[in-house]
Amino acid sequence: MEVRTIKVFTTVDNINLHTQVVDMSMTYGQQFGPTYLDGADVTKIKPHNSHEGKTFYVLPNDDTLRVEAFEYYHTTDPSFLGRYMSALNHTKKWKYPQVNGLTSIKWADNNCYLATALLTLQQIELKFNPPALQDAYYRARAGEAANFCALILAYCNKTVGELGDVRETMSYLFQHANLDSCKRVLNVVCKTCGQQQTTLKGVEAVMYMGTLSYEQFKKGVQIPCTCGKQATKYLVQQESPFVMMSAPPAQYELKHGTFTCASEYTGNYQCGHYKHITSKETLYCIDGALLTKSSEYKGPITDVFYKENSYTTTIK
């Protein structure tokens, strides 16, 4: 009895394709271990004539594949690729409408935090270190965002349907971005203890939790000093293409032309909904596939993004 075979390709990165001759009487799992086709788990399936010449994702289970996976995804987590594939199996079914010149995501599976993050990423200057993220990001900007969303979920250790947080998501993504040249110098002034300067680099240099107003941050924000008295913390120097200011959701007025974009969060910790506000020729609110415009805006804002380049204080 002759062994019926077909020729397929296996890959971990969709760049390096490895030619395989597979036995049609055995499952993919018996031949390769966990195997995925377009995100779908085909591990328990036997090869079919229609699979001839198709590319299958496999887990990096030998040295060659491990090197290829690390170079593309910059992670050695053995569960990463499987999590990416199972997320992709959902995100490829989502709709990605162009809204006001940006790629958004039609609401499904509690994905409003991903839509808000995706919209924000198209408006701030950011370059990702893992080629996987950078490639998928370019495709997302062009309207094909399924891979990018699935990668975000995998890097953030999230599953489809789980509630997510924009600030946490951005923080994970910033860790995989090139923020080497970003720098922030802060000064804390206390009447009792004097003053202390701190220099922050990388992710810490672009994120701040405690106030939404970048102007206020430049002037000074009140913080408790270690001595128990009130101290003032203010920005001395900022070198970065953008800054992200966050605070627990509270009524906040966004003035046209003073910011790049913002995240609105309605609801409580267990259950809520994100919308995205962007400042173009007027203010726009993007909620999944829905767009509304207004000249002014007041609502429960939790993150505001500002364009920056270089700032030095005039406070002496």
Rank of each mutant, 00 (worst) to 15 (best):
Q98N: 12
V160W: 01
G82V: 14
D180T: 11
F128N: 04
G101F: 00
N268D: 13
H176S: 03
N187G: 08
N49S: 12
T64W: 10
L114M: 10
G164Q: 06
I286N: 00
N16F: 03
K95D: 15
D77F: 04
E2A: 12
M209K: 15
C182T: 05
S79R: 12
P130F: 01
H48E: 14
F242I: 05
K201T: 13
A108G: 05
G33E: 06
Y265F: 14
A108S: 07
E2V: 09
K92C: 06
S213Q: 04
D77L: 03
K218Q: 02
Y208N: 04
V236L: 07
E215D: 13
L186V: 15
K298H: 11
K229I: 08
P47K: 06
I315L: 15
L119D: 02
Q175I: 07
I286M: 07
N309T: 15
F148H: 04
D165W: 01
Y57I: 11
T292P: 01
G257K: 01
Q122L: 03
A136R: 01
K229C: 09
I124S: 04
C285A: 01
M209Y: 15
C271N: 12
H256N: 15
G210N: 01
L37S: 12
M170R: 00
Y297R: 04
V185S: 05
K93C: 14
Y113E: 03
E239Y: 05
K95S: 15
T211H: 05
Y265W: 06
G210F: 05
H256S: 04
A142L: 12
V58M: 09
P78C: 07
D303A: 08
C190Q: 09
T314P: 05
P249W: 05
K127T: 11
V67H: 13
R184D: 00
P78R: 11
L283K: 02
E52Y: 11
K95R: 05
V166C: 13
D41G: 06
K307D: 10
P60K: 00
A69C: 15
Y269A: 15
S240V: 03
F242G: 01
Y269N: 15
F259M: 06
D287H: 02
S213A: 01
L151A: 04
D135R: 06
Q20D: 05
E52L: 09
Y113S: 03
V3G: 12
Q238K: 04
D63H: 14
Y297F: 06
G228L: 03
G53T: 09
S213P: 04
K54R: 13
Q238E: 06
L102P: 02
Q196K: 14
G101W: 01
K293R: 09
A115H: 05
K44M: 10
D13T: 08
N89Q: 07
H273W: 01
S310P: 02
L126R: 06
Y96L: 07
C149N: 00
R141P: 05
Y172A: 11
E253T: 11
T120D: 07
K233P: 01
Y84R: 05
Q122S: 01
P249T: 07
Q195E: 13
F80W: 04
I301T: 07
T211M: 04
S246T: 04
Y306G: 01
V188K: 10
Q98C: 14
Y138N: 13
K7R: 13
F259V: 04
G39S: 14
N309R: 08
V304P: 01
G299M: 02
L173T: 10
N129D: 08
G161R: 00
N89I: 15
T312N: 10
W94M: 09
T302R: 02
Q216T: 07
Y252A: 08
F259Q: 01
A154V: 02
Q222M: 08
A146T: 04
W94C: 05
Y36L: 00
K229N: 14
L102R: 03
Y84A: 12
F9Y: 14
K7F: 09
D77H: 06
L17C: 15
K127D: 10
Y269P: 15
E52V: 13
E308F: 05
I286E: 01
E71F: 04
L114I: 14
K46T: 15
Q122M: 04
C182Y: 09
I105P: 07
P130Q: 00
Y72D: 07
T282A: 13
T64M: 15
Y208K: 07
Q122N: 06
Q216G: 06
C156G: 08
N89M: 11
F9A: 15
Y72E: 10
Y274F: 10
I124L: 14
A262S: 05
T64R: 11
V12A: 05
K275M: 01
D109R: 03
K219I: 05
G33H: 04
Q197M: 12
S279K: 03
S310V: 15
I277F: 07
K275D: 03
N268S: 14
Q197I: 10
I223D: 04
Q216N: 09
S263Y: 03
T211A: 00
Y172V: 11
K275I: 08
L186M: 13
I277M: 00
K316E: 15
R139S: 14
F174R: 08
K54V: 09
T226S: 14
S104C: 08
N16R: 13
E281M: 01
K201Q: 10
F80I: 01
E239F: 10
T75E: 02
